Amino acid sequence: MADSPHDPAGPGVNRDDVRGPAGSDRADGAHHRREEPASETAPKEKKQKSFWRELPILLVVALGLSFLLQTFVARVYLIPSESMEPTLHGCPGCTGDRIVVEKIGYHFTDPRPGDVIVFEGPESWSAGYVSTRSDNVIIRGIQEVGSLVGLVPPDENDLVKRVIATGGQTVECCDDQGRVLVDGVPLDEPYITMDFPFTPGVVTCDTEIPSGRCFGPITVPDGHVWVMGDNRSNSADSRYHVGDEHQGAIPLENVIGKARFIVLPPGRWGMIDSPEIQSS
C-alpha cells in the first residue's frame, strides 16, 4: 500500500587520437587511440532506474506477505481494557499491551483450559460495540484495505479471555475456598489476584448476600469453550452472558487464535503464561 533520468554525457566514452614520441608520427603511419575511463554517471542512473522500477513490485510483495501472515499465521492486537489484569495490561486512555496472536495451532487442536485466546464476540457480546470505521466512503475503503495488511484493526468485536472449561464440562463457583470447579474439581489458578470477596462463614455462595464469585453450574455446549477474565471482579465474560443462546460459552468457530507473547511496550516483553489449570 519514475521518471527515467536523461544522460547528458551521451555514451560516456571519449576517444582522442595521439601522436608518437616527440610529437612525430610512427613510421608505420598507424595512429593509436587512448580510451578515457568510463563515466560513473551512467551506472548510477541505471541503478536509480532499476530501483524505481522494482519499488512497486517490492511494495506489492510486502503487502501480499503481510496479508497472508495476518490472515493465516499471526496478528498483533491491542489490549484496551483491564479485564485480563495482571496478565495483560490495558485501560482506557493508557498504553495497553500489544500481543501476538498465533492462528495456526487451533487448526490442528482445540483450545485447552488455561489458554489465553482472542475471539470474535458472538452477537450477545457485541450489543454495545461501535464500529471503528469512518462514515466517509473513501476513508472507510482505505481503512478496510489497511485492515487486510494489518495496518488497521479489524472492524469486529474481538475479545481476549482465558479458557476455563471446554465442551461437555460443567463449570461452577464456588467450593468452600472460593475456587472455580470444573466437573466438581477445583481449579489451580495462580494468575488470579483480583476477585470478589469470599470469606468462609461470612460471605459465601450460601450467605444472605452471596459472593460475587458465585455462578452455575453450567454445562458447556459441545464445540464451545467457557472463558473468564483474569481480573475476575472486572470482566464481562461468560458469566455475564449465561442467558444467551450459547449459555455464555464461545463457539470454536469464533476463536481467532492463541495469545502467545507481549511485543509492546518494550518493558512488558514476554511470553503469555498458559498453565495447566485442571488436574490431570
Score class of each variant (00 low, 15 high):
Val171Leu: 04
Val152Cys: 02
Pro113Phe: 12
Arg98Leu: 07
Val145Ala: 15
Val137Tyr: 12
Ile99Asp: 00
Val185Tyr: 03
His107Gly: 03
Glu189Pro: 03
Leu159Thr: 02
Asn157Leu: 01
Arg179Asp: 04
Ser147Trp: 06
Leu181Asp: 09
Lys103Cys: 05
Val101Met: 01
Asp97Pro: 10
Lys161Met: 09
Thr166Glu: 07
Glu144Phe: 01
Gly93Asn: 05
Gly105Met: 08
Pro122Gly: 06
Ser126Leu: 11
Asn157Tyr: 11
Leu181Thr: 13
Ile142His: 13
Arg162Val: 13
Val163Asn: 02
Thr193Tyr: 10
Arg179Gly: 08
Val100Asp: 00
Lys161Ser: 11
Glu82Pro: 05
Ala165Asn: 06
Pro154Ala: 03
Leu69Pro: 12
Arg133Asn: 09
Val180Pro: 02
Arg179Leu: 09
Gln169Tyr: 08
Pro113Arg: 14
Ile99Phe: 04
Ser126Ala: 14
Gly93Met: 04
Asp175Trp: 07
Glu123Pro: 11
Asp175Leu: 12
Asp158Thr: 13
Pro113Val: 09
Ala165Ile: 12
Tyr129Cys: 01
Pro80Ser: 02
Pro153Cys: 03
Thr166Ala: 09
Gly128Arg: 14
Ile139Ser: 13
Gly168Cys: 14
Ser81Ile: 01
Val100Ala: 07
Trp125Cys: 00
Glu172Gly: 03
Glu172Asp: 13
